[in-house]
Nucleic acid binder design. Sequence first.
RNA 1: GGUCCCGUAGCUCAGCUGGAUAGAGCAACAGCCUUCUAAGCUGUGGGUCGCAAGUUCGAAUCUUGCCGGGAUCGCCA
Length: 587
Amino acid sequence: MNLSSCVKEKVAKAYQQCGYNEAQTLVKLSDRPDMSDYQSNGALPLAKQLKQNPRAVAEQIATVLKDDSFFSKVSVDGPGFINLTISDKALGDMADAVLNTPKGGYERTTPPQKVVIDYGGPNVAKALHVGHLRPAVIGEAIKRIHAFAGDDIIGDIHLGDWGLPMGLLITEIQERHPDLPYFDATFTGEYPKEAPFTVHDLETMYPIASQKSKSDEAYLARAKENTHLLQNGHRGYRALWQHFVDLSVAEMKKLYEPLDIHFDLWRGESHVHDRLQKMIVRLQKEGLIVPDDGAQVIRLGKSKTGNDLPPLIMVKSDGAVMYGATDLATIEERVEEFNPDSILYVVDARQALHFEQVFAGAEKIGLTKKVKLLHLGFGTINGKDNKPFKTRDGGVMTLKMLMELATDAALKKMNSGEMGRDLTDEEKSKISKIVGVSALKFADLMNERMKNYIFDEDKLTSTEGKTGPYILYALVRMKSVLEKMNESAAITEQDIIRIQEPAERQLMLRLYGMPDSLQTAYDNNAPHVICDYLFKLAQDFNLFYHDCPIKDADEQTRRSRLALTKYTLDMGLKMTNLLGLQVPDKM
RNA sequence: GGUCCCGUAGCUCAGCUGGAUAGAGCAACAGCCUUCUAAGCUGUGGGUCGCAAGUUCGAAUCUUGCCGGGAUCGCCA
């Protein structure tokens, strides 16, 4: 049960009782909180259909609703809006049944889905930078939102581990260390278990190799040949490549761990290589893959908007496979292995055309009959100059640097003023990491997904206003109050919420409003809706905290307010968890 | 040139499956700590919702055109 569904049910009954279609009640949270908690706008379209006066229709429905003591006020305003105010008693009475539940009143209305999330993964052997923040952070939040809503969800990082960059690295290593056994065609023994290089060597070598390939045609040709050999099973190259993957995955885990980002599968494009080879042969036989200008392509015809789509290149003229091909084979594999209802691709919006092609290709070869494919694009993170976010000296901002910036700012804040005075250095260090990461993640998640957004150091390190630290601070206050009042135990039936102050009422309504926000966030895969909810929850709590003293109140009021604090903390923790934010005990 | 995304307060952004008086945060200004954490709270000022038509009882929201910014357009991922 939750408040919205309860109101909707009552209003629907009233419509029905008056002989109107109960499907058209248009009940929603009020746009005018100064006038009501909920509104029903259904009388306007109904009156239009029936050619009646909208106010008269609304009055008729309102008369029925007025008899219900659940509402303290029912009025018809404007052209025919029905304004509904819930009685304070009803709000208090519902608390235990709604808020003291694992999902805080959220109930699913559609069957649960099985969903695969594809993070359009980072590339092996390249340092994670600011551009890798969004897919990881957004994907993690979307994953948690789906899981909370009851979906069965599998996250696959989907590493870029099978393209030309691999060939470039092999080539560069060959240049530097031609004596390594990987390059010895006559070598038949076991290759070393330990890589003869570190992940940092790889991260340095790759940009150099990439640069060389742009100016040196022979070098590029060798890299392409090496990519081809790798993909076709060259024994030494496969061993070398395995080092790349192992080192990179270990490094990525080290970086994602403090961000509290986890993947169920660490597969990459390479994972479907064998399947892909079979798929290509099969589709060639069926005539779906055809030669075109030396390459092997799937022709796609027109897009949904009627434009000609460029063909999807499966195999390049040099024989290497393209990522569109691995994407198709990956869809096939996921359908066979997991049978998901949908696959969500949390990938940069700049790849919109690529996914349109892949999805059209999937449809053409019959893969979309069983699974819905959705590209959840996101905008890029830009600096103040509206160009990709860089360091002060113009270098690439790595994820690591970004996290250090945020952590340092949190630590500095804690060392200023009185806040951290009771804390040990060790505690401060731990807390500043949590707070810094929350600032970083929240600043990213609060933006509507598709938009590019401006991200500068001030914004990143800010701890005031609509920020992660503001929310954490409110939650820490709740913990602190509950601890000091010794009431952090479970809510009991004696702790009935009695609403006395406007701030209490507002906070209660906010708590009851969570299911509506969650549903919106779920339907639109929009974590920023949860950010907004959490921010408002924190604001409402801070007002309550300010207006409603607990310690010196009478026993009944004290218990009521403590219960309300506990409900707010529970809800806040549920929601921060959805965003992947951790909450310290003190800050 | 085709396609996609965006244009809302000085800045950064919500609101866009049509509803009443367009909201936050930051910045500015004025207040609130002997009282549960001031990373907080209260108040003030600040908007032709890019422009113009259209649909509608009603448009920031839907349609079309234009202007401005960004992205993208077969052998990189």
